[in-house]
Each structure stands twice: as C-alpha cells, then as structure tokens.
C-alpha cells in the first residue's frame, strides 16, 4: 500500500469517529472502564505476589531435637536433614541461645525468666529453610519421620492462606476482565457497524469501481484501533499517577512499613504497555468482526 493511501485511510477512520459522536463515546468509555479494572487488578495481584514472596522467605521449619539425643545423634540428624533434596539451609540453635533470645524478646518482663537458666526447658533446635517455600509443608512432614526429632513446627497456615487468596483474586480478576472485555468488544463492533451502515452506499460504490476488500477494510481498522487506544489513555495515566502516589504514601507512613510494595518503575510501564495492547487488540478485533460480516454480502 502506498503512503498516500494510508493517509487517506487514517483520515477516513478519524472522520468516522467524529461522525459517530455518541457511539464513539460509549465505546471509548467501555474500553476505559474495562482497562481500569484490568489495570487495578494487575497492580493488586502484583503487589500481593510480592508480599507473599516476602513472607515466604521467612517461612522456616523449626525442628525440636529430642532431649535424649547426644551430640553425635545431633550431627547425624543434621546430615540426614541436609541430605533431603528440598533443603536449602540448616542452622543449629542451641537451647541456651534459644532461651537468650526468648528472654530478650520479652524485654523488661524477661527478668522473670532468668530463673529458667538453671533448668533450661527448651530443646536444641535446627532451623531449616526449604529451597522453594511452597515445599515447606512436605519438608516438615518428612523431617518429622526422622529419629531424634521431638517435634516440628512451621508457619504453614499463613502461607497457604496467602496462596489461596492470590489464586482466588487471580481467577475472579480473569472472569471479570474477560466479561468486561466482551462488553467493550461488543460495543466497539456495534459502533463500527453503525459507521458501516452509514457508509453502505459508499462501500457498494467502492466495490463497483473495483476496490479490494482490503482497501475497504482499512478505515474501519483505523477506527477500531483509535477507539481502543483512546480508551487506554485515561486508565493508564490515572492508574500510573495513583500508584506512584500510593507507594509514596505507604513508604512515608511508619505504621505501614510491613507492606512491601512493588516499585512503580518497571511495573507501571509494563501495565501501560499491557493496557495499550489490550485496548488496541479489542478495538481492532471488534471492528474487523463487524466488517467481515458486511463484506460477505
């Protein structure tokens, strides 16, 4: 196709947008709302994932060593644990150290526990970290079966709950997004259909004088693309601005310091690219669907 012709198609496509005023507005609004939800969900899910990852890193298995085990038994046990594939690190915490940190963690009231130093009730402990935090539970169960293990403890519940929350969010998000996407596509297809009906005569004449289907399709392609891209502008700018501000606020508030947020820098760029892509895709898809039906006649 020649550049001059492309210029003509772009001009025609733009003219149609203006000509269909309200329908154009409705289509762009639908895309805007849809992309808003997609973008917000994306940011939320990315952050929950990040938060879950940070918690996962703290997940460890505490192995309480049987009181009857002597030093030799202990090092045997340590080797056995280390031989398990899933294991990343094994740290030994002697019961004296354990008590020490327990007393410290109680602060002032810790002094009441001083007397325990005489007869330490704690076990020696191995702190085991799994290579993949999701394996923690399996790992804990395996360690439980080893000899000289009194008990094992791990923060399974939090981790599992977190995983199920992110999964539910992901699925709910996908369902919502797909629904909205179809709505937007339907509206775009309808807008373009109105354009086409208005230009029915023109198309008929174009075909009569030997225009190819491709030539006829181009302005509608441009129109769909413009609908999608225009619909993406507001959600991208609003969500980017909002997210940067939110991160600033969270980081500036000491009470919220436990929240680790995904840094805006690559994230909002990725989100922007994705929203722009989705917008363009459904715009083009919607317009091509309605043109195809029409050109067959």
């Amino acid at each position: 196709m020649k550049g001059r012709t492309l210029g003509r198609h772009v001009k025609e496509g733009g003219k149609n947008l203006v000509r269909n005023g309200w329908m154009t507005f409705a289509s762009i609004s639908a895309v805007t709302i849809m992309l808003f939800v997609v973008g917000a969900f994306l940011l939320l899910i990315m952050n929950i994932n990040e938060f879950a990852d940070s918690l996962e890193d703290d997940v460890e298995v505490r192995v309480f060593i049987d009181l009857t085990a002597d030093e030799e038994n202990q090092s045997e046990l340590e080797t056995e644990i280390q031989d398990i594939d899933m294991v990343q690190t094994v740290d030994f915490v002697a019961k004296e150290d354990g008590l020490e940190s327990l007393i410290t963690s109680f602060g002032d009231q810790g002094t009441y526990l001083e007397s325990l130093r005489e007869e330490n009730p704690l076990n020696d402990v191995f702190v085991v970290q799994a290579q993949d935090p999701q394996q923690t539970q399996v790992l804990a169960e395996e360690i439980q079966t080893l000899s000289y293990v009194d008990d094992v403890e791990y923060g399974a519940d939090i981790v599992e709950q977190l995983f199920s929350v992110t999964n539910i969010m992901r699925y709910a998000g996908i369902v919502l997004i797909v629904g909205l996407m179809f709505t937007a596509m339907f509206l775009i297809a309808n807008t373009i259909k109105i354009t086409i009906i208005a230009r029915k005569r023109e198309i008929q004449i174009m075909k009569l004088v030997g225009a190819t289907n491709g030539f006829i399709r181009w302005p509608f392609f441009v129109e769909g693309l413009l609908l999608g891209v225009l619909g993406a502008i507001i959600p991208i700018s609003a969500l980017s601005y909002g997210y940067v501000k939110l991160v600033e606020v969270v980081q500036g508030t000491p009470e919220l310091s436990f929240l680790t947020m995904t840094p805006p820098n690559p994230l909002i760029l990725q989100m922007g690219g994705l929203l722009l892509g989705i917008g363009a895709f459904i715009g083009i898809w919607g317009s091509m669907m309605s043109v195809r039906k029409f050109l067959k006649v």
Partner: peptide
C-alpha cells in the same frame, strides 16, 4: 446514478482511481 452526495463532481470521478491507488 449512485453518486456520493458529499463529494464534488471531481471527487466522485476521482474516487474510482483512488481505490486503485493511481498517482495524484
């Protein structure tokens, strides 16, 4: 006749050549 009402006489005739991408 099947002319396009919004185009001038010249443009109506030129239309048949535009669709086959003739030079201006």
């Amino acid at each position: 006749f099947k002319l396009l009402p919004s185009l001038s006489v010249y443009e109506n005739v030129a239309f048949a050549l535009e669709v086959i991408e003739e030079s201006k």
